[in-house]
Design a protein around this nucleic acid. Structure first.
Lengths: 175, 175
DNA sequence: GTCTATAATTTGATAGAC
DNA sequence: GTCTATCAAATTATAGAC
């Protein structure tokens, strides 16, 4: 993997566990085995790094969602959508990057906050399309809010039970 | 108001907009019109301040919830509960303190993270009691997750519509 | 691309006068 | 309780050698 991508990966991990203020160039440099000046070579300002991480994260999520869109029924597509979030929470043991940055939105550089908005709008659009044929369903923004909130609570209480309850509730209201 | 409480108030506002890393003793001192050494007099370490803010916030929320518990039906009690969160979002123009700190939980001093856990557990207990007689209702943790997620999304997208949609959905599933 | 070196600022925290 | 003064460390960021 390129140094550019290694830095993005390390920055995503630190952002998702501690937030924007908890990421420093020196820590990232140490994570990937270089000096902080080298991190600045790849991402001149912290804001540049923030935007790049959110953009890369968005692309990664929507690549995974591409397969989920292929499912035959609206409910199966929603199940695939939920699965992407579950994987982020359980396998990567962290909340969604944009749950963290969305919470901090008012205190972020404008371009970073804007990238987070783009992520959520793209999620709304994806769900609108995936569930277009459903006869019964929550609004797209409701689904996203429920899952992001579930991640947040599961993260704090260190229990994924609430996530599964929310997932079951969403699926039972969709057909 | 005492200086102690003024500092708590300023710290809550800064925590809710930017997170733990966005709060500094100097900024708080400037907010309340003293020097940073005076803030340290009231709260020796940042961790002490963090715990105190979460504790005071919890008491404030549960004082408001006291009245909501008096309502006659489970649905009315849930409506009162939702109203406390709506007030925080709309009138104070910020997400719930514990949505922010819950997101950052993994990167917080342990005692601060523990205080956030206490807040959420108390919310679960409150809802369990308030909705004990309901014939049909979401699980308590589902309700909290839905509302916290709705605040997060409303905060990011700068629109309270999603919060109202989530609130309506919760009330319609409760009786 | 990565390094050393460093600038300029901010941060959490303390000592001691008043 | 609040202040001045200060410290040690950390932070974002840049200049210039290799």
């Amino acid at each position: 993997m390129s140094m550019h991508d290694k830095i993005l990966e390390a920055a995503e991990a630190r952002l998702r566990s501690g937030g924007y203020g908890a990421v420093s160039f020196r820590d990232l440099a140490s994570d990937v085995g270089v000096k902080s000046a080298s991190v600045h070579y790849h991402f001149p300002r912290k804001e540049d790094l923030g935007v790049a991480v959110v953009t890369a994260y968005t692309e990664k999520v929507f690549e995974a969602l591409g397969m989920a869109m292929q499912a035959r029924t609206p409910r199966d597509r929603l199940a695939g959508y939920i699965g992407v979030f579950r994987h982020a929470l359980v396998e990567e043991d962290a909340i969604c990057l944009c749950a963290m940055l969305g919470a901090e939105a008012r205190g972020l550089p404008h371009q970073v906050a804007e990238a987070v908005r783009v992520f959520f709008q793209a999620n709304i659009d994806w769900l609108d399309e995936a569930l277009a044929n459903a006869s019964r369903k929550p609004k797209s923004a409701e689904i996203i809010a429920a899952l992001e909130g579930a991640m947040l609570l599961a993260n704090t209480m260190d229990s994924i039970a609430v996530f599964e309850d929310v997932a079951d509730g969403l699926l039972s209201r969709t057909e």
